[in-house]
C-alpha cells in the first residue's frame, strides 16, 4: 500500500513526459522548415526529457542513482541549448532561408541582414580559397 503511491506518481510523470516527446515528434513532421522543426523538437528536448527523468527519480527512490539522474538532467539542460544554437547558426550561415510570417514586415527585416550574412560568408570562402 505504501509503495503504490510513488508508483502512480512516477507513472504520471513518465506518461506526461512521453506525451511531450510524442508531441515533439509530431511537430517535427508537421512543421514547414528547419527552424520551426527545431522549435517542435525542443519541446521534447526540455519538458519531455525532464518529466521522464523526474519520473525515474520518483520510481528509483532516494539513492545515489537519484543523484546521477539529477546530474543527467542538469547536463542535458546545459548542453541541449548549445547544440540547438550551433545547429541554427550553422544552418543560417549555410544559407538556409527561414520561412517567415508577413513578408512585408518580418521578411523585410530579415532581408535587411541576409545579404550581409551571405557576403560575409562569401568573403570568408573566397579569402580562404585565394592563399
Amino acid at each position: 500500500m505504501m509503495d503504490i503511491v510513488p508508483q502512480i506518481v512516477a507513472g504520471a510523470f513518465l506518461f506526461a513526459g512521453a506525451f511531450f516527446l510524442l508531441a515533439g515528434a509530431i511537430g517535427m513532421n508537421r512543421m514547414p522548415d528547419l527552424f520551426t522543426r527545431m522549435h517542435a523538437a525542443s519541446v521534447g528536448d526540455t519538458l519531455g526529457v525532464s518529466l521522464m527523468l523526474i519520473g525515474m527519480v520518483v520510481l528509483g527512490g532516494f539513492t545515489l542513482v537519484t543523484v546521477k539522474l539529477l546530474f543527467l538532467l542538469a547536463f542535458l539542460l546545459f548542453m541541449g541549448p548549445v547544440a540547438s544554437h550551433a545547429l541554427a547558426a550553422a544552418a543560417l550561415k549555410a544559407g538556409v532561408k527561414p520561412i517567415l510570417a508577413g513578408k512585408q514586415a518580418g521578411g523585410g527585416k530579415a532581408e535587411g541582414h541576409k545579404p550581409r550574412k551571405k557576403s560575409a560568408a562569401r568573403a570568408a570562402t573566397s579569402g580562404g580559397g585565394k592563399p
Binding site: 511531450f20 519541446v43 526540455t46 510570417a101 527585416k109
Partner: peptide
C-alpha cells in the same frame, strides 16, 4: 517559463491549422 512555453508550442503542434508565424528579430 519552460513549462508554460512548452505547453504553448504543444498546443500549436496539435492544432489542425498549425497557427505559426515565424519571426527573425
Amino acid at each position: 517559463e519552460i513549462v508554460k512555453s512548452a505547453i504553448g508550442v504543444t498546443r500549436i503542434i496539435l492544432d489542425p491549422k498549425l497557427p505559426i508565424s515565424p519571426q527573425l528579430f
